Computed example of a mutant assay.
Amino acid sequence: MRDPLFRMALVLGVLSAVGPFAIDMYLPAMPQVAADLGTTEAGAALTLTSYFIVFGLAQMIYGPMSDAIGRRTPMIIGVTIFLVATIGAALAPDIGWLIAARAGQGLGAATLMAVPRAVIRDKATGPAAAKMMAAIMIVIAVSPMLAPLTGSMVMLWGGWREIFVVLAIAALVSLCLILFVLPETLAPESRRPVRVAPLLRGAKRLLSDRRFMGLTMIGGFGMASFFVFLSSASFVYTRQYGLSPTGFSLAFAVNAIGFFTASQFAGYLAERYGMERVISLAITGFAGFALLLTAVVWLGVDHLPVVMAGLFLANACLGLVMPTAMVMSLDPHPDIAGLASSLGGTIQMLTGGIMIALTGPIMDNTVSTMVPAIALCASLAWGAAAVSLPRLRWRAA
């Protein structure tokens, strides 16, 4: 891959990491938030739920907007919203205020999920795009390793409010990158005005495309497995296994290492063996390891090293799945890449939110319920692949 594309991918990776950082950096502080604002664990979890829901829905705004006015302006608008909402979160006097501020963060951060994928589609397709996506995954994958650690370090000298101060600084840096480093990639002659009828036609075309929907749901259920982990991991690791916030951050980081390492081979493997073969094998590995870990935990072998090793292997497979699925879903739709990116992102985020809601009643903040919920998401992701990918569909028949 040429250096200019690699540099652009790294810039896009930094921008794309803002949203995950806003989630992961905050995780060690959730017990403190509940105590400080006089709310329950469920109330503290709503600060994540509000972020996810608005984050998912708002992508439907930024994608079409980026097709109409270019890629940079929607990102500038979104990051500005994120900055204002982050300041509001730092000043939150009660849990209701914080929930609303987190929703505002989701509204702003959504632009950094929807638009960078369209930028990649502007610059490359196929294995080259997979390599760019993998380069973005370098930065995104590092965030789950660094963000919780950063959050726990901030809590050593401050508290949960100072975490939002750090996020506000990150938003300012992102704004400078967009204004002064990132070029516009959508030529004026390629822009499509936002009109309701074409949007509906484009959405209908995408929603009726079995391959697009299948690949989107693969990513959606894969993301849902991560959301299930996010909603329960801090309580499982700190209460069942007695880890400190810093210890939780280190354990949490291990999960990202497998994802990060594997994602860097996605482009190379796709180029050598074909994207469909890579994703078929990887999604099978993801579901297989998740189900195996569930069986081991239910047999009573629920020691922390065993759980961490199982999640590491499952996430390594997921690291091959996510960038490949994203690229494959967008490749056939270059004329509506922004809409496809935003619709896919919205469906994936809503899928994650729905899975949290469905698994919530059975979750008791122990590993014996967390791991099966992750395995359920992995199995559904495999099912989506079996329906939409000819190679895997043939094998499953």
Rank of each mutant, 00 (worst) to 15 (best):
D3C: 01
D3Y: 12
L5E: 06
L10Q: 07
V18G: 00
G19R: 04
Y26T: 00
Q32Y: 12
V33H: 13
E41G: 03
T47D: 04
S50R: 04
V54M: 10
L57S: 01
Y62E: 07
R71G: 11
M75C: 02
G78W: 13
I95G: 05
G96V: 10
G96E: 12
L98F: 11
A100T: 10
T111E: 01
T111M: 06
M113Q: 14
A114M: 04
I120T: 07
A130K: 07
A134I: 08
V139E: 03
A141G: 15
M155C: 07
G158V: 00
W160T: 02
R161C: 01
I169R: 05
A171I: 00
C176L: 11
A187R: 14
P188W: 12
S190C: 06
V196P: 09
L200N: 02
R211I: 09
G214E: 06
T216E: 04
M217L: 15
G219K: 08
F221M: 09
L230H: 06
S231N: 10
S234I: 01
Y237W: 06
T238F: 02
Y241C: 04
P245M: 02
A251R: 03
N255C: 08
T261A: 15
F265V: 07
G267V: 10
E276Y: 11
V278C: 02
L292C: 12
W298C: 02
L299F: 13
G300H: 10
H303S: 11
M308V: 14
F312W: 08
F312E: 03
L318I: 01
M322G: 00
L330K: 09
A337W: 10
G338I: 09
S341H: 10
S342A: 15
S342V: 05
G344V: 04
G345Y: 13
M355S: 01
A357C: 01
L358Q: 10
M363Q: 15
N365D: 13
A381T: 01
A384D: 00
R393H: 12
